[in-house]
């Protein structure tokens, strides 16, 4: 393999990893507080992509309005999902929550199927994201460069909120002990809603960038990226934001480089991710950055 192709693949891996990371953060944040794997999280990619499509095609909004609008709306749908599917089950056993999450996922997918239909829609890709530039003799899509940069911006904003603000402190406290957080006079339900808002918005941003990269939008487009991001979150150590990012990059780079070095394994790309999940669960269930299991039950 020539150096050019290697760098091309590397940049592809980084941008794919960024997308996994953005989506994985939402899984990990919700898990951190509710100990719930929100299986409907991946479907928010689809929700955001369709919202963006309709904002552009039906209301003819420019992309720089329609994308933020889609992110905001998807964030609100995240809150709604919590209110409808999870909040009534706060005191129920965790398995009920998990089943409710799977239900929410099927509901979103099939609702989209009924309302919009199963035929893939093309995602309106603005000119500025479609350009191809040459860096040091390597031809890359500008999108491949924008994605990691945007991811970095979102990540910085998120880390600022979680580690430097009052609500962030309350989030970290709630991830340790919800009851005692209530005893601080904190409305934990509001903190949970905020967590869903932030996680879902990041998933929406990831979804829109995903659709820019692979501009075919259908009701099930969120399933595989969602599962991959879940693997990334587990790989990094579920509950840990930095871990989710690290896991996202490891998985994204791993997948792309695997295919680059062993083109004959290209069809096994998804299998590779799931084998990785099984291995992590078997040998290091707390992931790369994970806290010890004994810490909280």
């Amino acid at each position: 393999m020539s150096a050019t192709i290697f760098f091309q693949q590397l940049s592809n891996g980084i941008s794919l990893g960024s997308l996994y990371a953005l989506v994985a953060i939402g899984y990990t944040m919700v898990y951190g507080i509710l100990r719930l794997i929100n299986f409907a999280h991946g479907d928010l990619l689809m929700v955001a992509s369709y919202t963006a499509i309709y904002a552009v095609t039906m209301f003819s909004l420019p992309w720089y309005l329609s994308f933020p609008l889609a992110i905001a709306l998807t964030g609100c749908i995240g809150i709604l999902m919590d209110k409808v599917a999870y909040k009534p089950l706060r005191d129920a056993p965790r398995i009920s929550l998990l089943i409710s999450a799977i239900g929410a996922s099927f509901l979103l997918e099939n609702l989209a199927l009924v309302i919009i239909g199963g035929i893939p829609k093309g995602f309106p890709r603005p000119e500025i994201f479609a350009k191809v530039i040459e860096i040091l003799g390597v031809r890359v899509q500008v999108l491949t460069i924008y994605i990691p940069i945007m991811t970095l911006v979102f990540l910085m904003a998120l880390l600022y909120i979680v580690y430097r603000t009052k609500v962030g402190k309350a989030m970290r406290a709630a991830s340790k002990d919800i009851e005692t957080t209530r005893l601080m006079g904190i409305n934990v339900d509001r903190i949970i809603a905020l967590t869903f808002l932030m996680g879902s918005s990041l998933a929406a941003a990831g979804g829109i960038m995903w659709a820019l990269k692979y501009p075919q939008v259908n009701p099930f487009m969120g399933v595989i990226p969602g599962l991959k991001a879940f693997i990334a979150a587990v790989l990094g150590g579920i509950g840990d934001i930095i871990g989710a990012v690290v896991g996202g990059f490891v998985l994204g780079l791993g997948e792309i480089l695997l295919v680059a070095f062993f083109p004959e394994l290209a069809q096994y790309r998804d299998a590779f991710a799931f084998v990785l999940l099984i291995l992590v669960l078997l040998f290091r269930p707390t992931g790369i950055m994970g806290e010890p299991i004994t810490d909280k039950t």
Binding site: R172, K176, D177, T180, R182, L183, I186, N187
Partner: peptide
């Protein structure tokens, strides 16, 4: 609700201390 009770001017040091060890 609990957070409203606390806002009335009540402080609680719960059984088992329950400090936030990660903070």
């Amino acid at each position: 609700r609990t957070h409203q009770v606390i806002q009335q001017g009540i402080g609680v040091a719960p059984e088992g201390r329950k400090v936030f060890g990660n903070l």
